[in-house]
Amino acid sequence: MNAQTGPAAEPPTHGRHAAPSTTEDRPTDRAPRDDARRGAPDAEARAARSDRARAEARLGWYLAGPAFVVMLAVTLYPILQAVYDSLFNYKLTAPDDRSFVGLNNYVVILTDPVWWQALWVTLLITVITVAIELVLGFALALVMHRAIKRLRGLLRTAILVPYGIITVVSAFAWFYAFDITSGYVNHWFDWVPGIGPDLNWFAQQGTSLVVIIASEVWKTTPFISLLLLAGLAQVPGDLEEAAKVDGATAWQRFARVIVPNMKAAILVAVLFRALDAFRIFDNVFIMTNGANGTEVLSLLAYRTSIGQLQIGMGSAISVLLFLCVVLICFVAIKLFKVDLAGARGEK
């Protein structure tokens, strides 16, 4: 989508880049200087380029248009339908009793402890998994990035395998590993204090969440490490070399050179993972089905609209879930200034 709004389509935006305050931006002044050098022939090139730019923009629409229309049909339409349905008291098996209740469904949901409990559990899972995955993912990305050529393919495949497994399948695998009647975890780890043959992992909130979070981390860390690997690949090697020559330690190179240079990639990875983690469903559905205070928002929406066929109430929950996701996006993009284009190396 950025192809239409980027520099190519709107040449005037170049002006902003061309006038930096040269004294402050020492580390990044390479780019402005390039622009300045190109400044002279810019005026005559602009006319010629705008034709091409326009053609490119049109081609962009031709290529992205069909997908855009499909996206509208499969996302915008259902969202609007859900907003409309959420204003009714409507049960699928009693369509004749449908009645308009205005915002009453939202009032019921927002005054109900079930909603707040599910929101709290969802946020808890989101924050913990993203934090663990960011650390682990970074480590794995560094390993993949630094591995010697011959090992690289094998290593990347090995790290990516969990991500290729269907979530339901991995949830079942973890469930059966920890299950009290069929699992092996209690036998293998009975030397750990607190773990023994009588520990039922899925009988209380804490231990259930530990297994749910562990399976989520195992499954999706490869995703975050892939995004971070892409970011690592963008860090110019000469910067690092220069730091090395200047006598920076490995930690200094990591904290002062690598991380600042891939900040955009890190923020994008965190945003994508947070949005994904916030919509967690499969693991909880398979392992506890919401028992013992492990219910998450997606499961609540599912049970209400699919399980009880309460289309009105379920739609209201879905709309609220959608608003939460929008809020996360908004906070990330506005407050943390996540730059989606920057992460793709378009600047």
């Binding site: 039922n200 899925f202 009988a203 028992a291």
Partner: peptide
């Protein structure tokens, strides 16, 4: 200890 997660097949195993 398995009671809170015991379904019919699990009962049979017990």
């Amino acid at each position: 200890a398995g009671l809170p997660s015991e379904d019919e097949p699990a009962s049979l195993t017990v």
